Amino acid sequence: MPRKKKPVIEYRHYSLPIHFPVLLLSGERWKISDIKSEHLHFHNHLEIGICYSDSGIMEIKGESVPFTAGDVTFLPRYLPHTTYSSPGEASLWSYLFFSPEDLFQHSFKSAYSNFEPNLWAVLGKNCILNKDKHPMVYSLATSIVEELQQQKPYYQESAYGLLLSLYIELLRIHSTNEALTDQEAGHSLKGDFVISPALEYITRNYMLPMTIDFLADLCHLSTTHFRRKFHEMMGTAPLDFLSSTRIEEACKQLKSTEDSILEISEKVGFHSISSFNRCFSKLMGTSPKEWRKSAQSETQSAKASILEFTGWV
Rank of each mutant, 00 (worst) to 15 (best):
W93A: 03
R3A: 03
C51V: 14
N114Y: 07
N44D: 06
K109R: 09
I202S: 07
P100I: 03
D259Y: 09
T299F: 13
Q156T: 04
L242M: 12
C279I: 08
L103F: 09
E308Y: 12
P76T: 14
C219Q: 08
A198M: 09
S243I: 11
I195G: 11
I247H: 02
V137D: 02
V22K: 01
I32A: 03
T176S: 11
M233I: 09
L119F: 04
A179I: 08
S256F: 01
E10Y: 10
I273E: 10
L189R: 12
T299E: 14
S294V: 10
H45Y: 12
I9L: 04
N130A: 14
D182C: 02
R12V: 13
F214W: 12
L171K: 04
S175I: 00
L171V: 09
A90E: 07
A295P: 00
H45Q: 14
H174F: 06
L189T: 07
L254K: 05
Y52P: 01
V145F: 11
F42G: 00
W291E: 02
P117Q: 01
I60F: 13
N44G: 07
A216F: 05
S243P: 00
K293C: 03
T224Q: 04
N114E: 13
H19L: 09
L307R: 14
T203A: 12
Q105H: 10
G49N: 05
S188C: 06
A141T: 06
E258M: 02
